[in-house]
Amino acid sequence: MKHLKQIRVIAFGLVLALCLVPLMAQSAQAWEPKKPVTVVIPYARGGADVIGRFIQSVVGKYDLCPQPLVVINKEGGSGSVGMKYLIDRKGDGHYFMVSLSSAITTPLTTNINFSWRDCTPLCRAALDRHALCISSKKYPDVYSLDQFVKLAKEMSAKGTPLQMGGTGSKQEDEIVTIMLEKATGIDLRYIPMTSGGDVAKNLVGGHIDATVNNPSEFLGYVLSGDVRLIVAFDKQRVPGYINVPTMPELGYPDATYQMLRGLFMPPDVDPEAVQYMTELIKKVIETQDWKDFLARIMLDGSEPIYGAEFGKWLEEYDAMHAKYLKEGGLIQ
């Protein structure tokens, strides 16, 4: 009888195992998107959404994903509307957002009750540089940071501080302006503008004196001699502007800023989905198309970081923003 019992146990075990095989096979099978993957761009069409649309076109070109990628623009509130939309897609692995630094600055400076911490950090795809640009028509003699500082001091003594244009308020451009003010002890007047185009127009037209901006946007004006780059807020010199010194070289080691081009997924997503998306983005980043694209828009894509590592970096990045915003008196 003992025998029979053993056989029964074995049989039961076998049946159980047989039942579990497909289950296990299912869980061993990797997560795959079951519907189109939505790329959320929290900004208006044009400008920042080029990256998202480029990822879409690369995925399509090399057939990297069984489902198509769709791009939607959820603009407004300096990126907060798009972020809220992503957070509301809780648990759905079919979404990712392509964000700039506003994912960090907007939660810090407004009273919205969510932040990038509510999202799942996916990847730091690239970084953009910042440089101090001055209208060379208006100030033909200013070539170096020293001359700029001298000029700024003269102007503030006259009661008309130098006018620095920049995109938006309490965003990266104003933060870098504060960084410059604190590092060199000068006083500038920050004029918020609506877009990069608005800044370019006013700088080239001589309506503002200087700006801090992504050097890629001003390449054309630098070549034509309308705008001059004074200094880059970066550890390394910017390719394409190899004769422009950096802040650390001039003795301001902390005055560096890199602007984020980061990818985020909704909160509480299945880790397998995150894994899948990470692999997908890795494949995109490895293509030559992506490298050419970054070189053309002068982004630094040399060190993409993913997942938890990206999250850790974001914490430091967030703290740096908070520090300068506090020093500039923009937040308490």
Partner: peptide, 18 residues
């Protein structure tokens, strides 16, 4: 001038870089 004066121009200038 290369200035994106309209949303369309902003898109096209992005395209030109590419």
């Amino acid at each position: 001038l290369g200035i994106p004066g309209s949303p369309l121009a902003a898109i096209v200038l992005g395209g030109m870089l590419i």
